[in-house]
Write a protein that binds this DNA or RNA. Sequence first.
DNA 1: TTTATTTTATCGCAGAGCGATATGGAGTGC
DNA 2: GCACTCCATATCGCTCTGCGATAAAATAAA
Lengths: 256, 256
Amino acid sequence: MTKPDVQDRMFVDAIDRGLNVLRAFRGHESLSLTEISRISGLTMGAAQRYVHTFEVLGYLVKDEGKRLRLAPGALEIGSIYLTSDPLIERANPHLAALNHSSKESVNLSRRVGDDMVFLARFTSHESSFIHMPIGTRIPMAASATGRAFLARIDPAEAEEIVHRTAGRAFTSRTLTDPGEILDRLAETRERGFSSSSEEFYLGDLNIAAAVTGVDGHPVGCINISGPTSRWSLQTLEDRWAPSLIHTARAISSLAV
Amino acid sequence: MTKPDVQDRMFVDAIDRGLNVLRAFRGHESLSLTEISRISGLTMGAAQRYVHTFEVLGYLVKDEGKRLRLAPGALEIGSIYLTSDPLIERANPHLAALNHSSKESVNLSRRVGDDMVFLARFTSHESSFIHMPIGTRIPMAASATGRAFLARIDPAEAEEIVHRTAGRAFTSRTLTDPGEILDRLAETRERGFSSSSEEFYLGDLNIAAAVTGVDGHPVGCINISGPTSRWSLQTLEDRWAPSLIHTARAISSLAV
DNA sequence: TTTATTTTATCGCAGAGCGATATGGAGTGC
DNA sequence: GCACTCCATATCGCTCTGCGATAAAATAAA
């Protein structure tokens, strides 16, 4: 369970237990009731009750036979979030303009724990397309957007996060040495943007810059991503980093 | 409450009560605890417990003062859905290709109740951009995608939906007469695609075609949307409806 | 056809979530 | 600076919601 303290009487267990039913679908197209019970750790009766509840609410739908799938109704809360976060609506015109001029994928993300989460995504105008839907999480230490964010928070906190989370490799190119990552943060602080080359998936190059709030603290990041088939990291940086920084500043200046 | 039957002992009330806290944020950037209590219909104590629970889970975050906002963590379940629905991943390359050739906004949607919900969105390569995030719902009767879907289901069911939901106008151009909408469905059945002109918001033109499953029933729709500043409905149809239909069929042929 | 597994339906129980309320904190007006 | 109002937080005794267990029904596999 997510509950931090077994004595937290303010925490509603049923919410977490219910969400665990939906979380069970991560990496699965469909699941049987028995599989949901096993993956979520709930008894068969409890799993049955939550599944029934989410079917009524439109979050789950029965597939052929008795298997269940997540349904489009599961987008309900995420959709409310996407229309209530002012940063997204404020950033969109700027992201669209940068997407238009660069013709590459341009995204907005915010921090969630040790990850960056995509909130808005304008896909490449060229034929190379990679499926990274809204809500996708990328580890901060292994991504340009994450490192752009880390470069703008308290250095001690950034160092703690890097030491705690570095080490996991996603490709053969992922930086895993904390010292090397911290060097990249220092470089990012100097240049005002970060970059990564094929660290989260092969063939993908990225440059990113932080968006700040009125107090100068980072509230999110924007990035441009382009494939190795069209760019080298050097040419992507030379051509688009100035516009990226300019766009990040333009979005930052709208913060209230 | 959403509960259809007060005697439904399988329904977990706490889930619905909790979701009502999050639903309260629809149309609001932030809310106080008192406002959440009032909008959701929960007592102060219950609202307090659910707010605390969602703060721990990362779905809500405290703003300046005591106000609360939805946080990016609220995308959790929606994100799992977007990566588990095989239609989305199957459709993406085709949507990207159509977006690339048409340079206009290309989207995928599925039916939820009386609405169509955007599941994937490739934005226009031109400068006109409209904020319609993933999860946005559009009434079936008042949209090209919805009418493309209605044209492929049982005519009696389609007629019932049109009579029950038609009448609400979103712009001065929204079709509200059920007879006229049913005529458009007949036209759609003939042409294999539907269209709408400025019905959901002014300046927006749309053509749509249904994606079908192995049994020929519709499982979703794709649409191309372009602004009146660049197209007339006639030229959008003439130029892109053949490709749209072709793309819908290509996606349909991948269904299992 | 038989057996095994999964799903559904039901029930008595107990503790999770409840509403009420007291207390603390913040904002406003004088 | 103080009084008042409103909001937020903390707490408590209570009850009914969600529980696990289990029997029956349905489905899948041999």
